[in-house]
C-alpha cells in the first residue's frame, strides 16, 4: 500500500489512530526523545538520543512479586506487561533494523515472554533519512540504508510538502486504513520524486567501515591483538555506548526487597552493560573480561563477529550514537577499521 499524505494532515492521521498510543520525537530538556504526542507533530528531528527499543525492552521490567511469611512457603504473583498498543512515528531506518535484531535475540531459542508481549503491541512508523541525521551515521557499512524498511511497519519519505507513505507490514496497512480518507493516491510524479529522493539519500556521504564483509574473519583473527587495550585506553567504563544502542540487550536480574516481616519484593530485570567491570565477574572474583580492552573487544566483536556468526547479520545498525555520545571519543567505526587494518 503506497499513498501520499500532505504534511498538514499528519496530525489528523495520528488522531484517527484510535486504540493506539502514539509517540513521536520531541525535543525536551535539550535531548530528542520519543514522547506521547501532544500537539502538532513535525518530523524534523535528527535522531533521538535513545532508540525506541525501550518500548519492547524497558530498562526495568518486573517479572513477579514475592511475599513470604517467615516459616511459610513464598507466594509468587506474576506481573505481566501492559497491553497498550503503541505506534512510534519518526523511527529512523537504523532503529527499525535494531528492532529486527532485538527480535532475533528475544525470539530465537526460547521466546522471551515479556519482550514478545510488548513487541507485538508496538508499531514503527519510520522516516527515511534524506540527509544523514548525524555526522556519525554509517548504516551503509552494516548492510542498512537510509531508506531501509526492515523492522518498520510503515516508511515515510519526506517529499517537501508531503510524505510518501509506504506500508511495509499488515500492521502498517491497518494504521493507514484507519485514516484512509486522509491519503491520496501517488501520482507518477510522486513516484519519480520518491525515487530521486531515495537515490540522493543513498548517495549522501557517510562514515564507512572498510571492506565490511571481511570484518568478522579479521576480528576473529585479532582476538589476541594488543591493539584492543591500546584502543580502549581512554575508555572510562561507563554505559553510554550500550544504553543508547538500538541492539544492546544485556540485562541483569535482581530481587528488590520492598518490605520485611513479611518479606516482600519484586524480581526485576534491568538493563545491564558489558562495559561495566563487574558484568562478567564470577562470584569467586575471577573475571573473564578483566580489562577495558577485553570489554571493548566484547562490544565490538559481539556486534561485528559473534552476532553475524549466530544470526548471519551484523548486530550494529550504524546509528552512530555510541560514537556521538562517547565521553572520550571511542569510535566503533575507527576501532573496527584499525583492528581490521592491523590484522592485515
Amino acid at each position: 500500500m503506497e499513498k501520499i499524505l500532505h504534511k498538514e494532515r499528519i496530525d489528523d492521521w495520528i488522531s484517527a489512530l484510535t486504540g493506539w498510543e502514539v509517540l513521536s520525537p520531541a525535543l525536551e530538556d535539550g535531548i530528542w526523545a520519543y514522547r506521547p504526542v501532544s500537539g502538532a507533530v513535525r518530523l524534523d528531528h535528527p535522531n533521538t538520543t535513545q532508540p525506541p527499543k525501550g518500548l519492547a525492552f524497558p530498562q526495568r521490567e518486573v517479572f513477579f512479586s514475592f511475599e513470604q511469611i517467615k516459616g511459610e512457603a513464598p507466594r509468587l504473583t506474576q506481573i505481566l506487561p501492559d497491553t497498550v498498543q503503541r505506534a512510534v512515528f519518526g523511527v529512523r531506518p537504523c532503529d527499525g533494523r535494531g528492532a529486527v535484531r532485538m527480535d532475533r535475540v528475544f525470539g530465537d531459542h526460547v521466546e522471551d515472554t515479556y519482550y514478545q508481549a510488548r513487541r507485538k503491541n508496538v508499531a514503527y512508523v519510520g522516516l527515511a533519512c534524506n540527509q544523514p541525521p548525524s555526522a556519525n551515521c554509517f548504516c551503509l557499512s552494516v548492510g542498512g540504508s537510509p531508506v531501509s524498511t526492515d523492522g518498520l511497519d510503515v516508511l515515510l519519505t519526506d517529499l517537501g510538502d508531503r510524505y510518501f507513505v509506504a506500508a511495509v507490514t499488515e500492521t502498517g496497512k491497518a494504521l493507514m486504513t484507519a485514516a484512509n480518507s486522509l491519503f491520496d493516491e501517488p501520482a507518477d510524479a510522486d513516484r519519480q520524486q520518491l525515487k530521486s529522493v531515495h537515490t540522493e539519500a543513498l548517495a549522501q556521504p557517510q562514515r564507512a567501515v572498510h571492506n565490511p564483509d571481511a570484518v568478522p574473519a579479521k576480528l576473529k583473527a585479532s582476538f589476541k591483538s594488543p591493539l584492543w587495550e591500546e584502543l580502549a585506553r581512554a575508555c572510562i567504563g561507563c554505559g553510554i555506548c550500550t544504553f543508547l544502542c538500538p541492539t544492546c540487550h544485556c540485562f541483569d536480574i535482581n530481587d528488590e526487597v520492598t518490605g520485611s516481616a513479611p518479606l516482600k519484593g519484586n524480581r526485576v530485570r534491568t538493563w545491564d552493560n558489558c562495559q561495566f567491570p563487574d558484568f562478567t565477574m564470577h562470584t569467586s572474583g575471577h573475571n573473564p573480561r578483566p580489562t577495558v580492552g577485553a570489554r571493548l573487544r566484547q562490544r565490538v566483536c559481539h556486534k561485528f563477529q559473534y552476532f553475524p556468526e549466530n544470526f548471519g547479520m551484523p548486530q550494529c545498525t550504524g546509528c552512530g550514537r555510541c560514537i556521538s555520545e562517547c565521553p572520550v571519543g571511542i569510535d566503533i567505526v575507527s576501532v573496527v577499521n584499525k583492528v581490521v587494518e592491523h590484522a592485515g
Binding site: 554505559g239 553510554i240 563487574d278
Partner: peptide
C-alpha cells in the same frame, strides 16, 4: 537518568573501588 554512570566514571574524584550503586 538512565544510570549509565558516565557522570561517575568520568569523575576523577569517584575513585572508590566499591560504589554504592554497583550490583
Amino acid at each position: 537518568c538512565i544510570r549509565c554512570f558516565a557522570c561517575r566514571s568520568v569523575c576523577p574524584m569517584c575513585y572508590c573501588d566499591e560504589c554504592v550503586v554497583d550490583s
